[in-house]
Design a protein around this nucleic acid. Structure first.
Lengths: 150, 150
DNA sequence: CCTGCTTCTATAAGCAGGTGATATAAATTC
DNA sequence: GAATTTATATCACCTGCTTATAGAAGCAGG
């Protein structure tokens, strides 16, 4: 009952920090070549294999028409491909291509470059704190991924 | 000379972790009411007082016309206001309104709500690691903010 | 003071990527 | 096998960005 009021003050600080950090990450994210949704979708396809289109749009937080269009664009650029599902004639199975993997790698590399300069300006203690927090960040990612459909 | 090759393996792991975490944050970011740029600009106006329009667009990473349009929209919604600079007849000074502060607060609150549930599912050690990393995240934000204009 | 350059903001035209409503085809149910 | 549900595509429209350009205000030098 009191649960709703029981959000620790500390969590508010974490949320504020993340809010700021989100903008930081947005700034160092390469903008050319891929939109945010396109990049995120490609990484998902890379991480966890082919998806049916209907399984893809909800976790990416866009509508089904948006995903259809995105896949069409990715296909046109050779970064992903559609195949029909032999088991279900209605379905379309989307997978990443080699060129798609390369694009993801380029983007990742760009971020590494942008970050590496910054990381060198941190104190060793700050750097260590970041590395120590990585598993927790990953856990948060897993938790969000398995959420109903916020 | 070898500097370019001297990016520690660890930094690549940090970059990969951030890449994933960026998508996590994007997912729990409220989408209604404010676009990403609009939210970021409003928070900037809240954080560090009024800005001339010409000082505002570069750090937000958009073109000058985009910022003019954004300010027009924000003004129409009552979240920000234009005033002319008495010292420079060409300039426009943009500041956040009370309604704007309220919108920022609502958004922040939404993020706190979305996060608090997740944070409770972390182990105490993970939670502590996050809190310990907050200053480093803030430092990164400062470093990016003072960057030339990437 | 004007003339011409620079700076600051606004406008216009166009594109990318999103939405809801709706069509169509395949699968499923009764 | 007719009716319903599910998966994808298409349509019309909106938002927010881009580049190119215009217009107004400041700041020289002659």
């Amino acid at each position: 009952m009191q649960q709703t009021a029981l959000i620790p003050v500390e969590d508010a600080a974490v949320a504020a920090g993340f809010e700021r950090f989100f903008e930081t990450l947005r700034r160092i994210t390469p903008r050319e070549e891929l939109s945010l949704t396109a990049a995120s979708t490609l990484r998902r396809l890379e991480r966890s294999g082919p998806y049916r289109l209907c399984e893809l749009y909800a976790p990416e937080g866009v509508s089904q028409p948006a995903m259809t269009q995105l896949v069409t664009r990715l296909e046109k650029e050779g970064l992903a491909e559609r195949r029909s599902d032999p088991a279900d004639g209605r379905a379309v199975v989307v997978s990443i291509t080699e060129a798609g993997r390369a694009a993801v790698a380029r983007r990742r590399e760009g971020r590494v470059q942008a970050l590496s300069g910054l990381l060198q300006d941190l104190t060793p203690a700050e750097h260590a704190a970041l590395v120590a927090a990585l598993p927790a960040l990953e856990r948060l990612g897993d938790l969000v991924a398995e959420q109903p459909t916020t």
